[in-house]
Design a protein around this nucleic acid. Structure first.
Lengths: 316, 316
DNA sequence: ATTGACCATACCTTTTTTATATGGCAATTA
DNA sequence: TAATTGCCATATAAAAAAGGTATGGTCAAT
């Protein structure tokens, strides 16, 4: 059949994967009828698709003999390449499926210093379940991390919340952690005692997180002191938690931090004591964007966090 | 539509090339309707193929918004890979087309020493016209080369034929070359003369190709000498032409070779003279298998050889 | 409130693919 | 020599897939 413009009326405008599959099966079976048995497809369709492929490629791919077919040079050239191609097609499909299911992908989380322990615990569990997901972790101040979250550079943050305080985002409380005074021998305001009476802080220099960021652990303590009739001297305003630890350790004064932060430094000369009259708590929370369409691996991570929290609650 | 076993009745069993093309177009256009304008296909079919692809890959590839679509993580994963895939599919098709047309592939030829010049001339022309074909050339004795040809390790041979002698294969005479005596000053049987009378060979030692191979150039000369009433002394039977050249040059005796072989060594002390009464000729021939199905590049080469021969004939 | 741009669905038509039936060819077998 | 067998190609009708048109829903901008 020839069109009025002289061109053959084959409307097969590009090579089809099905044709490549048939072709490869024929090449491997050594005959069309053999391939038809393998593919569970009748012989004529394969014959036809092969002919279409040959038309499309303007080359004879097989020598037809009376006991099968044999690859020509062009056929061998196609066979080598089509095997790779079919292979990478399957690989591609699998990897997309994995990404869709959250088995593969990228998970980017931000962590504040106080949450390093709980975050790494949770991420460890996550990694055991989804080892193919690439983890990106960064540490920073709550403000910086929230900026990155808003710009979509991070998927979730480990922060601290004051009970029900909210960031206008989705969040989940992961646990609780008493806030305690941090000190070392020599700066202990109540040596030998289990807890420190708040009045003992009256003339003690303090090292606190600056409270002009989102909030520092010290702000509520200072307010509590004012209610108790005095305003302690803040010897040092720290921009971050590890620095506060260092200053306390260096003897600048008494700090005020979640107990777990100090507990994470076994062997350190620094230790904590509660304030006798003031049982404040800090809540590690996981914060994420209120995106109705999260990447699969982020979903899986948030689900894991939910299970984790449920378990913690039952334990308590 | 759900089958009785609970599975969805989608019969789309593998990713389709067309689906990838549509997908890539949508990703690039940023909207389905945009892609439909680019592809000259209505919007609903693209929408449908996209849905099929998403079903097949068990992943949402695009976020549908009211002003277009946006790639999800799985979509980005697919896009990166599908671009490469589409690209290499086209490359593959082109390369197969090239092989089919004889523009690309492998051409393996065997050459006997006497034919080096004519062979390299012809191969040079071929290479200029088909620079992408990889050439494989080997030199050897006619017997070895014919073995390789029969085993399919070589596509064509440059040999010498005695006028109408045949190898049971296809062959084409490429030219003609007078057979002459080879000598140097000191072994010249007729110094100062243009041609050597055959009787002058009576007591001259000769260096000839051994004649137990397919045939040596010397065999017919020896017969001619016997007809002339004498049998010359063969000082040295040479297994190959270059060795004969060396022996002649070393002064072992007089050789008998195609003139062009000696002419290819300008500056050599060796030169040729015809036998006065005996004007034998050697014919460079191209020999190939009588294969009804030659690789494209071999066909092109044989066609070139035909044109070359025609031109030579016209010239003569 | 209306319009416009977009995507999804329903439905019908066209194209493509498949399966069945059949014929030709070459090699093996009776 | 004739028959059989296994192979591929072609013709044709049925099934499947893809395309086109019409239409409805949603959201944002007018």
């Amino acid at each position: 059949m020839v069109n009025f413009d002289g061109s053959m009326s084959e409307r097969n405008d590009t090579v089809n994967f099905k044709q490549l599959e048939y072709f490869a099966a024929v090449a491997e079976a050594g005959s069309i009828s053999g391939a038809s048995r393998v593919l569970h497809v009748a012989q004529p369709p394969i014959s036809r698709q092969l002919a279409l492929l040959e038309d499309e490629l303007e080359a004879t791919l097989f020598l037809r003999t009376n006991k099968g077919v044999e690859l020509t040079e062009a056929g061998r050239c196609l066979y080598q390449q089509s095997r790779q191609m079919l292979q990478s097609l399957r690989t591609m499909a699998d990897s997309v499926r994995d990404v869709g299911a959250g088995m593969r992908g990228q998970l980017k989380v931000g962590i504040i210093y106080s949450d390093v322990q709980i975050a790494t615990n949770l991420l460890k569990k996550y990694h055991e379940e989804f080892p193919q997901v690439e983890l990106y972790v960064r540490m920073g101040s709550p403000g910086d991390l929230l900026d990155d979250l808003n710009q979509g550079e991070l998927h979730a943050l480990f922060l601290r919340g004051q009970s029900e305080r909210s960031y206008g985002l989705r969040e989940r409380v992961l646990g609780e952690d008493p806030l305690e005074l941090v000190m070392r021998a020599g700066t202990d305001p109540a040596p030998g005692q289990e807890a420190v009476p708040i009045q003992a802080l009256r003339d003690v220099p303090m090292c606190l997180l600056r409270s002009d960021d989102l909030w520092g652990y010290g702000r509520d303590l200072l307010e509590e002191c004012r209610r108790a009739g005095f305003s302690p001297h803040v010897a040092c305003h720290c921009y971050d938690t590890p620095m506060e630890m260092q200053m306390v350790q260096a003897g600048f004064g008494v700090g005020f931090l979640p107990r777990s932060v100090v507990a994470a430094h076994p062997g350190s000369p620094v230790y904590t004591k509660p304030v006798l009259e003031y049982a404040a708590k800090s809540y590690p929370i996981l914060v994420w964007e209120n995106d109705p369409y999260q990447a699969g691996c982020v979903k899986r991570f948030l689900e894991l966090a939910e299970r984790y929290q449920k378990k913690q609650r039952h334990r308590a």
